[in-house]
Design a protein around this nucleic acid. Structure first.
Length: 585
RNA sequence: GGGGUCGUGGCGCAGUCCGGCUAGCGCGCUUGCCUGUCAAGCAAGAGGCCGCGGGUUCAAGUCCCGUCGACCCCGCCA
């Protein structure tokens, strides 16, 4: 490319550029050779523009261009001209103009691409990942890559303005057995010892608070060795934030403004702030989940009181055993078939419910359940759910959490079936999570968030009497039913921390082994602090309307954690293992 | 660890239920023709371990067993 300099992006040319002499460099997107006249769509990350070569006017350029094939890397110089009337292409942003080629050069040939570089094609994901460099040339992937960068940049700009410092924390850290499974890295210098890759910079950012940083953030890579999903990769990126001398409202307010700014800046999307805030209890009561999808209604109602004296055994027994009865209404516009009832019942059972009661209002005789209910009970139910003749009520009688989540699951499913979801970005905070949960299998109390989250002040007395009732200064931020972030105010008082450790079965010795460095730090003047971590991949995927975070990660891994492009993971040399003092079974 | 869907030229698919001649279609690819196309057109052509291994059978893309891989989900993800 002797002396040639690219002067503009292919997709940038418009009618106003007519008359300009330009040099384009990019990929031959499509070549249409008419024997005497060649059209080449030249593509780069800005888009596509049509170049035309007339052999009569530029015979030497013609000789070069007639050999061009898909994805050849090309350079050409020429004049931007308005297309002849009737040949404009309204499907192309550059469709009013074309470049009349005067000089052409092949910078590099290319094999035919394994799949077309076009949106809307269906190619096996493994093929896309194996040839990810080809896949990333597709317009949608160019867009996703760009917007992810814009979003990250906006976050950094915002945090800078708010007085936060971006600080890197180590990737090789100490393994702590809580939470997810760690990725381990063997130490060569200390035989038999291992580093872990961070599941999040949690402990280090708290230590930065002790060190007086006051306002920290990081676009942090995190690692969890757990099974993958559409929204879960073994390595993913968090917007990690920690602040000193703040309470919950400060963190939530900061987060709202950060999201509002960055969504506007990167995606042009306006978010309304503040986001609604509801407690965990209210979320479960009304939506049957701790991450409610607020893009549609169909709320759960408690009907325990109405059916407490029911002659239907299941209901009566449930109430007698201190359980509760929840209900949702399915409007008559949606027909529930026998098959549908079976599917819904299976869902309820998967959430631990014994069954699902179906009451078609107006057709009580056909319902096994409704036959047992009095006119008054039916009327009260209809009133509580604002239901009319023709609507169908679905009820679950069980322990509070099971009844709620069973109907919560059904609510989500029906929203899909009935196409209830409204467009837009529906955000909310869920707060006041229980600080602990009971693990039935292991018969022990564990932290529901992490062991450093502080309890609500008014619940501190419950730590001794009824720890499972203690609520934490914990908050999750939810976008259209997806958890996109969560955080808490941390414990900065050693006595309180010791008490919490005790409840979750961590004695002094274990605490010292696992978190000794943090506890020691806390003895040297730890400020009150709290923070939040947001899932960058999920946020960008949701903002761009992608189903999977793999669509917004340049080089993601398959469901078995492998990379078809580089073929990681792979076996290593015997010598490498030996140096690391490892033997493979 | 479990459930579901899938695997056939480079890509996307049909054929598999109900075994039977030369495995078919669209796109792409190669060659030729073609001066206003933009999913260019026309003509000719090349290209297949039907994921892999084993079995049943006169005969397997098709039936059986095993195995590998992809995607979705449950478990798991403080």
């Amino acid at each position: 490319m002797k002396g040639l300099k690219k002067t503009c992006g292919c997709g940038e040319l418009r009618a106003k550029d007519v008359g300009k002499e330009v040099t384009l460099m990019g990929w031959a997107h499509r070549v249409r050779d008419h024997g005497g006249l060649i059209f080449v769509d030249v593509r780069d990350r800005t888009g596509i523009v049509q170049a035309v070569c007339d052999p009569q006017k530029s015979p030497s350029a013609y000789e070069v261009m007639k050999d061009w094939r898909s994805e050849f890397v090309v350079a050409l110089r020429g004049k931007v001209e308005r297309r002849p009337p009737g040949t404009e292409n309204p499907n192309l942003p550059t469709g009013e103009v074309e470049v009349i080629v005067e000089y052409a050069e092949t910078l590099n040939p290319s094999l035919p691409p394994p799949f077309p570089i076009r949106d809307g094609i269906e190619v096996e994901e493994i093929t896309r990942l194996k040839y990810r460099y080809i896949d990333l040339r597709r317009p949608k992937m160019v867009r996703n890559t760009y917007y992810r960068y814009k979003f990250t940049k906006a976050v950094r700009d915002f945090m800078e303005k708010e007085g936060f410092w971006e600080i890197e924390t180590p990737i090789l850290i100490k393994s702590t057995p809580e939470g997810a499974r760690d990725f381990l890295v063997p130490s060569r210098l200390v035989p038999g010892s291992f580093y872990a890759l961070p599941q999040s910079p949690q402990l280090l950012k708290q230590i930065l608070m002790v060190s007086g940083v006051e306002r920290y953030f990081q676009i942090a890579r995190c690692f969890r060795d757990e099974d993958l999903r559409a929204d879960r990769q073994p390595e993913f990126t968090q917007i990690d934030i920690e602040m000193s001398f703040v309470d919950r409202d400060d963190v939530m307010d900061l987060t709202e403004r950060m999201l509002r700014y960055s969504f506007k800046e990167a995606f042009g999307i306006e978010l309304d702030v503040p986001f609604p805030r509801i407690s965990y209890y209210e979320a479960m009561e009304r939506f049957g989940t701790d991450k409610p999808d607020m893009s549609f209604d169909m709320e759960l109602k408690d009907v325990t009181d109405i059916l407490s004296g029911s002659s239907f055994r299941v209901f009566a027994d449930a109430v007698r055993d201190g359980k509760c009865i929840k209900a949702i209404k399915v409007p008559q516009s949606f027909t529930i078939t026998r098959q549908m009832v079976d599917r819904l019942t299976d869902m309820a059972k998967e959430e631990g419910a014994k069954g699902l009661a179906v009451i078609p209002l107006g057709e009580e005789k056909s319902s096994y359940v409704a036959k047992f209910l009095t006119r008054e009970e039916l009327n009260n139910l209809a009133q509580r759910l604002s239901a009319e003749r023709g609507d169908v009520l679905l009820l679950v009688a069980d322990e509070w959490e099971i009844a709620c989540s069973a109907l919560g699951r059904i609510r989500l499913f029906l929203a899909g079936e009935m196409a209830l979801r409204r467009k837009g970005f529906h955000l909310l905070w869920v707060t006041d999570f229980p600080l602990f949960k009971y693990n039935r299998e292991e018969k022990r109390i564990e932290p529901s968030h992490h062991p450093f989250s502080a309890p609500l002040d008014e619940d501190i007395p419950l730590l001794d009497s009824d720890p499972l009732k203690v609520r934490g200064k914990v908050y999750d931020v939810i976008l259209n039913g997806n958890e996109i972030g969560g955080g808490s105010i941390r414990i900065h008082n050693s006595e309180l921390q010791a008490k919490v450790f005790k409840i979750i079965g961590i004695d002094e010795k274990m605490a010292e082994e696992r978190f000794g460095f943090l506890l020691r730090a806390f003895q040297y003047g730890a400020p009150p602090h709290g923070g939040i971590a947001l899932g960058l991949d999920r946020i960008v995927a949701l903002a761009l309307g992608e189903e999977s975070i793999r669509e917004v990660i340049a080089f993601p891994k398959t469901q078995t954690g492998s990379c078809p492009l580089t073929e990681a993971p792979s076996p290593v040399d015997e010598i490498q293992l030996k140096e690391l003092h490892l033997k493979i079974e």
